[in-house]
Amino acid sequence: MTEFTGTYSATIDDKGRIVLPAAFKKEMGELALEPLVIERNLFKDCLDIYPEKYWNDRVTEFKSTLDPFDEEDDDFLQFFYENFIKVGMAANGRINIPADYLGYGKLTKNARLIGMGLSIRVWDVDVYEGQRMAKSTFVQRFKEKRRQKSAE
């Protein structure tokens, strides 16, 4: 099972290309031969990259909640599909990020890539530092979650 972990630095070139760290490429194994999906993160100014296999599972789960004959669900589905794109990865781990996705993520030159389990989060370094959760907030939320879990 793929489990992306760790934090890495990367550079985005003038053509919008970024090379995934060797650790991420290795973790993908044979999935590196399949397309990747780049999604605009709905909550933060960053992008999420998924191997297509895991993305397809998300799409299937999402679509199972919708009625294809409901107008609001149709709009909902359209927004969902507008929010991601499939790309290929070169043998060296390089991917091209379309310009509008770079703009959405406020990505310029220096990027921070964070393993998020089944996906890889891509941040502009400066944006990441401005939106990153503080350690004290993490500790507080962690304790709250543990208390909730033990109360169940």
Rank of each mutant, 00 (worst) to 15 (best):
A91P: 00
Q140H: 14
A111F: 06
M89H: 02
M89W: 01
A99R: 15
Y101R: 07
W123G: 02
T137V: 13
G115L: 00
L107K: 09
E129N: 12
Q131W: 07
N96R: 11
Y104R: 10
R94N: 04
R94S: 08
G93Y: 02
K135W: 11
A99E: 15
I114V: 14
A111G: 09
W123Y: 12
V125S: 08
A134L: 11
M116F: 12
G103C: 06
G130A: 11
W123N: 05
L107S: 08
F138N: 04
K135H: 11
N110Y: 09
Y101S: 03
K106D: 09
I97K: 07
G130N: 12
L118W: 08
Y104M: 08
A99V: 15
I97D: 05
A90H: 03
G130V: 04
T108Q: 10
A99Q: 15
G130E: 13
R94W: 01
I95T: 08
I97V: 13
L118P: 01
V125C: 01
K135I: 14
W123I: 04
N96T: 10
P98K: 12
A111Q: 07
I97L: 07
D100V: 11
E129F: 05
L102F: 06
A91S: 09
N110I: 02
G103R: 12
V125Q: 07
R132F: 06
K109H: 12
I120S: 02
R132A: 15
D124K: 03
A90Q: 11
W123E: 07
I97A: 03
F138S: 04
I120N: 02
A90V: 00
Q140E: 15
R132E: 14
R112T: 15
Y101N: 05
N92C: 00
V127P: 03
Q131F: 08
R121L: 05
N96S: 11
D124E: 08
I95P: 00
M89Q: 04
R121F: 00
D126I: 06
R112K: 15
N92T: 04
V125F: 03
V139S: 05
L102G: 08
A134I: 07
G117E: 07
V127K: 12
T137C: 04
Y128W: 15
A134M: 10
